[in-house]
């Protein structure tokens, strides 16, 4: 592994984050290999969302460096808009654009950022809607869709950019229980297709079944890191044991 980040898709080194006087991330080193599905779990306030959001620089690390494909994205000279087209993110609160149809939501960045022509953008959007099992919802507005459908549109919107990495920030937490599975199924499909994914979640079933690697964070640090089955069956750290005993 070279000094500039190596073969890992994303690599973090000595990363700290303060919000004012609040020290949220206290020195994290982490690399995510191509094709892996990294699941991040941990108690609320442990910094897992902040960690994820630093991977596409929605949060800027106060200290430390982050590389994407060997490129230092904490360097102010890096064109973040360009980097972000390669990193898709899906949010807890969907964040679909309410004034656009599902089609509009997916095509806007294709046309304005990737500069595809309208026809090509529409074709790609249709393919992604198909992929997410929502081909008939192209002309619906977000307010006309269920939470699960909105979230799958949001995934389609991110996928249409053909990203190399997908980030999922507690994407099922705002959903009614009966709508969670359709979103998890879509994510599992994506993992099976070989997408590199980093997933912050409370869905332990998903973590165990789909994750190739699991990270447990507590108090702004990575406490445990390994294959999900191993951590579930045989947690080493007391805090992990405590957390798992509460959620399982």
């Amino acid at each position: 592994m070279s000094a500039t980040g190596g073969d890992a898709l994303i690599r973090m080194e000595g990363v700290h984050k303060w919000f004012g006087a609040n020290h949220v991330i206290k020195g994290v080193d982490l690399s995510v290999e191509k094709g892996s599905v990294v699941v991040i779990i941990g108690p609320s306030g442990s910094g897992k969302s902040t960690l994820l959001r630093m991977m596409n620089m929605l949060e800027e690390p106060t200290e430390g460096k982050v590389w994407f494909e060997g490129k230092d994205i904490t360097d102010i000279r890096t064109d973040l808009n360009r980097v972000r087209t390669d990193i898709g993110i899906v949010f807890q609160s969907f964040n679909l654009f309410p004034h656009m149809t599902a089609m509009g939501n997916i095509t806007i960045a294709l046309r304005k950022v990737l500069k595809l022509d309208a026809k090509e953008a529409a074709e790609r959007a249709r393919a992604e809607l198909e992929h997410m099992g929502l081909p008939e919802k192209a002309d619906e507005y977000p307010s006309q869709l269920s939470g699960g459908q909105q979230q799958r549109i949001a995934i389609a919107r991110a996928l249409a950019m053909r990203p190399k990495l997908m980030l999922f920030d507690e994407v099922t937490s705002a959903l009614d229980p009966e709508l969670v599975q359709e979103v998890l199924d879509a994510m599992k499909r994506l993992a099976d297709e070989g997408m590199t994914m980093v997933v912050v979640t409370h869905e332990m079933g998903f973590a165990r079944e789909v994750g190739t690697r699991m990270i447990f964070t507590d108090g702004g640090r990575i406490v445990e890191d390994g294959p999900p089955r191993e951590i579930f069956d045989n947690p080493k750290d007391d805090r992990t044991k405590d957390f798992l005993s509460h959620v399982l």
Binding site: R84, T85, G88, V113, A158, M161
Partner: peptide, 15 residues
């Protein structure tokens, strides 16, 4: 306008 709207837009690579 909710902060998430801007975050979603910027995450798609928009300036």
């Amino acid at each position: 306008i909710e902060r998430g709207q801007r975050e979603a837009a910027r995450s798609l690579g928009m300036s």
